[in-house]
Design a protein around this nucleic acid. Structure first.
Ligand SMILES: [Mn+2]
Ligand SMILES: [Mn+2]
Ligand SMILES: [Zn+2]
Ligand SMILES: [Zn+2]
Lengths: 141, 141
DNA sequence: AATATAAACGCAACAATGTTGCATGGATTG
DNA sequence: CAATCCATGCAACATTGTTGCGTTTATATT
């Protein structure tokens, strides 16, 4: 199962013209296996001993994966980026996120579509939207 | 005009049981005069020579003003808090913001009301929403 | 399989933003 | 005027992320 994800991850990386290093494969496999958006720290901790990476290398690998649209970055009010594997609908970059104000977990809200019946001030141009719903998750609520 | 804002700011501070120091009055007057949400740096630079504050004092004054609901903090993907005076509708904390992806200015979108016809996963509880529309402002677009 | 080479990597140093502890100063109150 | 306590300034620290640069390594080429 996890091994299968490694193969998938390796394929995804090679198909984007990148070198399939143990670090990149391990990171992407972790993100593919996890439903929640993960912080740099959480990813680091879940990496097996055999694939311990330097902090900087981890940042650069995540940046590369995001640039290839294999994962996406999620902003948050705690000044920490979270990363999440792109699956199907995620690629639109128009999905919202939920953040638990108690345990800080972040999940994607795939079903939430944002209506655009509003308008901006004159001269302003829309490009993208960033929506975070905050509250308590099932465990904390 | 700016003097009038100082008097207003002084009133607002005293009515909340705080000491009306030159720093707090100056900060609040600046925020009351400015339409955009301002960063810590921008506020610091606009403070007159006579009211130069320590970085930490400025942070603490902003924290105090936000705690009294005289201003509100705006989160952003650049990891910098912005501050904006509360006026009327702002107090609801349910207004959205626009951020220019070119010049990084942030304004409040008072008119944008967020519809709640969506639902969260089972067990999840809604508390508040954070919405940022991104694009180009009138100057940059 | 050996080699060449550009892409990844590791380390150190740096940068930006914000926080904490603590001693000092000064406004407010009695 | 004295006592109090809120606010301030300074130093040190914390967190997150970035940059420069020399070294290693995955991959293509021979
Ligand atoms: Mn997402
Ligand atoms: Mn606002
Ligand atoms: Zn939770
Ligand atoms: Zn702009």
């Amino acid at each position: 199962m996890l091994n299968q994800l490694h193969i998938t991850a390796e394929d995804m990386i090679q198909q984007n013209g990148g070198r399939a290093t143990a670090g990149r494969i391990g990171i992407l496999a972790i993100l593919l296996a996890e439903q929640q958006a993960m912080t740099h720290r959480e990813i680091e901790q879940r990496l097996p001993e055999a694939v311990q990476l330097d902090r900087v290398t981890l940042y650069r690998a995540l940046e590369w994966l995001a640039g290839k649209n294999l994962i996406h970055k999620v902003t948050s009010d705690d000044r920490v980026w979270r990363y999440h594997a792109n699956r199907g609908v995620h690629n639109t970059h128009q999905h919202a996120h939920f953040k638990c104000m108690c345990c800080a977990q972040v999940i994607c809200l795939d079903a939430l579509t944002i209506e655009r019946n509003w308008h901006l001030p004159t001269g302003y141009r829309f490009q993208e939207i960033e929506l975070t719903v905050k509250g308590l998750c099932a465990d904390c609520g």
